[in-house]
């Protein structure tokens, strides 16, 4: 673990202690076993306590955890025969978005997703997972290419947002997002969206329209970042924790509002503590929903998709 959040610290410290004791026990000190057992129980209890009572802001921090698995990590765990495609055929290739094809149980899926970098160099190359228009256009190009061969789409969402820059505006960031949303709505194949980390506003929705939207337990999805919201509401980004509460951006919040269909539970301590187990659970959820969606005709899929989004919203008729 390269990075420890404040509320992870007591757990990590205990774990470190247990490791030390284990090492000592292996060196021949047998009397430590009871102590190891006691501490192991203690850490489990502590973990349960902390993770069952996470504030919304703590979940935001987990969703942005530097060790959190990213799209390519999940692809390598869940799928085989991954082939990545590049470029929007108009301007450039955007490394903040990955797109291609891979197999799951012998069937080929189109895969698109935001991609953040792990090392400093890679973070910069991938622009912290903030796409330019060419990233969104690449994703749509590959989704349409896949649909031509009847291939269903799995989309992994994890972005702070669409990049706000001069080039992005010149090349139509708003238009790219709008076109993706419109075109995903009528893509004639099943679309399963998995929000794995940060669902950063329009930059997330641009590859986030689907028949089923799944969300990892500690992922977030919001119209605006808590920092942005806080600087509007309280003129200071330091109130982001309050903004996170106000925005209701966690997976349970979104399930309640009917925006997502299912929460995928994360391993104790979060996805970054056990990539394999997290990926297994995502795979299971994808298979479950796909086995149902594959039986639905393209026309009906599209009609239902448009109907589903058409129903979202809370208002009154006076």
């Amino acid at each position: 673990m390269a990075f420890v959040l404040d509320f992870e610290k007591p757990i990590v410290e205990l774990e470190k202690k247990i490791e030390e004791l284990k090492a000592a026990a292996e060196a021949g000190n047998i009397e430590l076993e009871d102590e190891i057992k006691r501490l192991t129980q203690k850490v489990e209890k502590l973990r349960k306590e902390i993770y069952q009572n996470l504030t919304r802001w703590q979940r935001v921090q987990l969703a942005r955890h530097p060790d959190r698995p990213y799209t390519l990590d999940y692809i390598s765990q869940i799928f085989t025969d991954w082939v990545e495609f590049h470029g929007d055929r108009l301007f450039a290739d955007d490394p903040a978005v990955v797109a291609g094809f891979a197999k799951l149980d012998g069937e080929t899926f189109t895969i698109v997703g935001h991609q953040k970098g792990r090392t400093t160099k890679e973070k910069l190359e991938r622009n912290f997972g903030m796409p330019h228009p060419e990233g969104y256009r690449k994703a749509m190009r590959i989704m349409k290419l896949g649909a031509k061969f009847g291939r269903p789409v799995i989309s992994f969402v994890d972005t702070p947002g669409a990049f706000p820059g001069i080039g992005a505006e010149e090349r139509g960031q708003a238009l790219a997002i709008a076109e993706n949303i419109r075109d995903m709505a009528v893509l004639p194949v099943p679309i399963i969206v998995v929000v794995t980390g940060e669902g950063g506003s329009g930059g997330a929705l641009a590859i986030g329209v689907g028949d089923v939207v799944l969300m990892l337990e500690h992922a977030i999805y919001s119209v605006i970042s808590p920092e942005g919201c806080a600087s509007i509401l309280w003129r200071d980004a330091k109130y982001a924790p309050d903004a996170a509460e106000a925005l209701k951006l966690t997976a349970p919040d979104l399930l309640e509002l009917g925006v997502i269909d299912e929460i995928i539970p994360e391993p104790p301590g979060g996805a970054h503590r056990d990539l394999k187990l997290t990926a297994e659970r995502i795979k299971k959820a994808i298979k479950k929903h796909y086995s149902r969606l594959k039986k639905v005709s393209p026309d009906k899929l599209i009609r239902k998709r448009i109907e589903k989004y058409g129903k979202m919203g809370i208002y009154k008729e006076e």
Binding site: A178, V223, L247, L249
Partner: peptide, 16 residues
């Protein structure tokens, strides 16, 4: 902002 994630979903509602 005051309607949170549901306001974001209006983009999908209208564009679709």
């Amino acid at each position: 902002m005051q309607e949170g994630i549901l306001s974001l979903m209006q983009m999908a509602k209208t564009a679709s």
